[in-house]
Each structure stands twice: as C-alpha cells, then as structure tokens.
Amino acid sequence: MEHSAFGDQSNATFSITDEDHTLANAIRFTLNQDSRVTFCGYSIPHPSDALVNVRVQTSGDPAREVLKDACLDLILMCRHVRSTFDKAVDDFKANEGVQEQNIDSKAIEGVQALDIDSESD
C-alpha cells in the first residue's frame, strides 16, 4: 500500500505486509544505489506485526517507479548470484573428484613407505 501526499508522487511511504528486515534492508540497499533517490529508509512499527514501512523520497521521479526499479535490480542481482554460485559449485565438484584421487594415491604411497620402513626395522 502506498501513502503519499496528493499530487506529489516523488515522496511516498510504502507499507509492505508479511515482510521484515530480510527484504526491507536489501531493498534499502538497492534504493540507496539509485541516484534518483534523495532519501530512503525503513521501519518496523511493532515487532509482532508482520509489516514494514519503506520511505522513498526522490528528486522528481515517481517514488513508486523508483521502488519498482529497486526490486528489479535486486531480482537481477539475485539471478546473477544464483548462476555464479551454481557454476562455482559445479566447478568445485568437478575438481573435487580429481583432488580426492590425488589424496588417495598419496595416502597409498604413504602406507607403502611405512611398510618399507617397518620391514627395514
């Protein structure tokens, strides 16, 4: 829900239900990154209400559009995080197989070395 002064769309407070610091803090970050934003912040009026108020003040553009862009930015960032993470995990799994083999062969060498030692004793 949006609360803003009649006729002035560049300053507004948005009440988002069923959300908390998780989303609000991340959104505040992306809003802050937008050069059209002159002020933004969020508050949770009461800790047992699932409600967060996000305040957006811009240098002219409609606050609603700026907030939408912030959401979009966050979505794109998340997508990028996800694809990078998946790739890193796949790479790690692929390399891990090789590494494990190496460790094994080393361990075997170690055992053989030990055997030789004990024989010479």
Partner: peptide, 18 residues
C-alpha cells in the same frame, strides 16, 4: 540456491503489487 530464489520471489511480489 533455494534461499536466493525466495528473495527473488519476495521482490517479485512487491513489484507486482506496485
């Protein structure tokens, strides 16, 4: 990856509500 997806869903919800 599921956690990242949930954050995306949250943004999408706000976006479509606006």
């Amino acid at each position: 990856t599921e956690a990242v997806k949930i954050l995306e869903d949250k943004c999408e919800r706000v976006f479509s509500e606006l």
